[in-house]
Amino acid sequence: MWWIGALLLSLVVAVVAALRRSPLFTAIGLFFLFFSFLRSLSLIIPPIPAFVLRWYLLLAGVALLLYFSIREETFERFKAPLIALLVEREMRFLRVPVFLLFPLAMAYMAYAYTKPALSPPAESRTIHPEPPVEFSFRGKRIKVLGLENPLRKDRANLARYIAEGKEIYYRNCVFCHGDLWDGKGIFAHGFNPAPLPFRGTDTIAQLPEGYVFWRVSTGGPGLPPNATPWSSAMPVWQDMLSEKEIWKVILYIYDATGNKPRTWE
């Protein structure tokens, strides 16, 4: 909640500084305004991961610096307080603490950075790694590229297949991938990486069916080396379902979410 306070405070700083025509403090105010704005967003949406937050802040900082240095006069005024702090006699009472504060802040940063943490480090995950050229399905070699859903062509029975796929989904997948296909099944909270949603445009909607077939058939253990962190709980469904059953459940997840598999042309 204290982000709201920070938000208001930096707003005040920015406005007062702008009125008093002090570019440096306007920039500082705007920067913290932006920072606390991004943080307070977590009241309505999931927090922005630190990794992205850092990039946004860097961008904001650079943009402010650029903005206040376009005009020579503005830039002079921008630098003035800093230079005054460094050289003017009256400022010496401020100068000493600032000079002390700097190394202390650095020391704290170094400490915070190296201190052993209880949480595992941040991980980057390639959610859609490239598939292998071919994989083994119960001893049979299947090529991933160009692999199509054989049931989709059988238009007459499509509705039946989808209905059967639905049953397969509710027997097997719903616990993790959820009742609403949003990846929030009752077990989902226990897994890292979390089960993926099927709704929306960024999972199965951008994958060809052959790719999805490969993922369902080989599960987490079938992920290639670059798809770290290798701890996906997605089961290897070829051990439990037949080829046809997997194609059926794939038909179902596309149908239920209104998504269409990716085609190349």
Partner: peptide, 17 residues
């Protein structure tokens, strides 16, 4: 694809923000 700590990933509730 975001780089996220476990807590952040939890809060996301999915892979994508």
């Amino acid at each position: 694809s975001l780089v996220a700590t476990v807590e952040e990933a939890r809060a996301l509730g999915g892979a994508f923000h």
